[in-house]
Amino acid sequence: MKKKGLIFLILFSGFILSLLLSLFFGLEEPFRGDSALILSMIRIPAVLKAIVAGSCLALSGMMLQTISKNPLADPYLTGLSSGAGLGIVLSILLFNGINYSIFGFLGALISACLVISLSGFSKFSITKLILIGLSLNLFASSVISFLILLNPDKAYSMTLILTGGFSSADISNKTLCLLFVILLFICALFIPKLNILRLDSRLVFQNEQGANKFNILFVILSAFLTSLAVYSAGILGFAGIICPLLVRLLLGSDARILFFGNILAGSTLLLIANFISNNLIYPMQIPLGVVVAIIGAPFFVFFLVKKGGAILK
């Protein structure tokens, strides 16, 4: 218990530190002139989006990993990423990329709905869901490659946008916060039920084969979370896999604890990644998705090799 408290303290201070760093690094007089403009127009929206995208991805990864009992499950499992990518590419081709994040959001939701309804409500099985999602991902990503090849003049900007970043979404801070808080509230209602799903699914309690009901519920919830993440930060791979795994390594598998752990860890990861992507080769920007994978992968492999027994079991 003491150990968990300490880990929470570390996570929280990391979060605050990265928050302050992202907001105020390199600004001489934060509240005057151009600096105020930069703060209100660029940094605060970016920080908000990082928190929203990070928490959403981590939470949705946690849900899917728990219900599928598979550490490989990631938020884009349900064909979300390619659906979102397809939406973005189409919006670039048809509308010159104006408000492409809303198209990403819609694409993500539509593909998730398609996959979930195809995998069936009454005879729902998570394996079926994963396989259908995989097929949709392959299908949609091939279409994306084809569209990019057909339009080489826009290939550069399409590839860039598909790697994800915070400059994309034209959504007001208020709307984003509102959506995020609503989703978090719904998650908080259902999170304790995630604890049931970590039990062996063969332990049948008669008259209560309702575990499937919760499975579908969490899949739908995670699709919404991921779509919101896509809306605010584009398609960021990896964050949704490593955050839940890392937090589980550190904090055990009580969903109630993991809920807060994932929100903190996800936001911190994206804030740090955002900071690095903005400042490493200043004034140029490294695509956010690239940074997430580059700092995330070694960090995660290190933890896995050092103390990965718990999740590999």
Partner: peptide
């Protein structure tokens, strides 16, 4: 009723 299989999996860290 309560059905219990031979090698029920269990969560870790709980």
């Amino acid at each position: 009723m309560f059905y219990l299989p031979q090698n029920a999996s269990c969560p870790t860290g709980v």
